[in-house]
Design a protein around this nucleic acid. Structure first.
Lengths: 127, 127
DNA sequence: GCAATTGTACAAGAACTATTGAAATGTATG
DNA sequence: CATACATTTCAATAGTTCTTGTACAATTGC
């Protein structure tokens, strides 16, 4: 993870259409969805959705697989985890207990946490 | 958390300048930094930085406190946690074990995790 | 009250992004 | 081989964002 990748990812999620498409794919998990399904679910013209899915794919947030004449899209969760780690790197200048005074967030994330906890804090490649 | 807030936050972090400013403030923790310090650290013209800090503040990612003639900025970590929860809401369609096959992310985030784990998965306000 | 310092607000131009419609690509089917 | 289907690509337009320079407001100290 570096600044370029991070800004690209954020830029990708800065559009309501791309954000909804990504969240929809997160919900589907490894099953993913084909382009037409996504367009129908979100009520969007296929060419417009294709434009945004392309952006998500270039940012690495989704992956694409061809299935006959369908294109199946899947969310890339590991990238999100890297991004979170990048954002909170060296957080609170070595006094992370300051960050612990929080009380929100839910969803499915608990399932993601073991992966986070298994790693000791380490420096990113920042200068 | 809703789509509007989420896109605003992502939009805020989609600029390299704002991303670096936010990460810098995350590192400072509750101490925060005054505008001039941030501008000097990032090597930016004060008016340009002010423009971007304003965007971060409007998105809620940073808070501002006046200290005499200084403006002290601090990162808003709880908002980031809400955002992460929003992104991963209902992830994998009720089969979150699919998400567990990850292995990355680090930094200070382990300190943030108890806050996440304390909550059972629940629905967001999406339709 | 006056000047210096810190920080923000405003305006203009260049660059970028989003949406739409039409056409093209590639795959399955009769 | 011809047709229908799923998706992408291209071109044009409209709107938005970023950067720079200048001007303004607020606080401090004499």
């Amino acid at each position: 993870m570096n600044q370029d990748i991070a800004t690209t990812v954020f830029e990708s999620l800065a559009s309501g259409i791309r954000l909804e498409a990504f969240r929809l794919l997160v919900k589907q998990g490894t099953a993913g969805m084909v382009a037409g399904e996504i367009a129908a679910t979100l009520g969007l013209p296929p060419n417009n959705l294709s434009f945004h899915l392309k952006g998500l794919a270039q940012a690495g947030l989704v992956s694409v697989t061809q299935e006959g004449r369908f294109q199946r899209y899947r969310a890339n969760l590991p990238l999100m985890l890297e991004l979170i780690a990048y954002l909170t790197a060296e957080c609170c200048g070595g006094h992370p207990e300051q960050c612990a005074a929080l009380g929100q967030a839910a969803g499915c994330s608990p399932a993601l946490l073991p992966a986070l906890q298994g790693q000791p804090p380490n420096d990113q490649e920042q200068a």
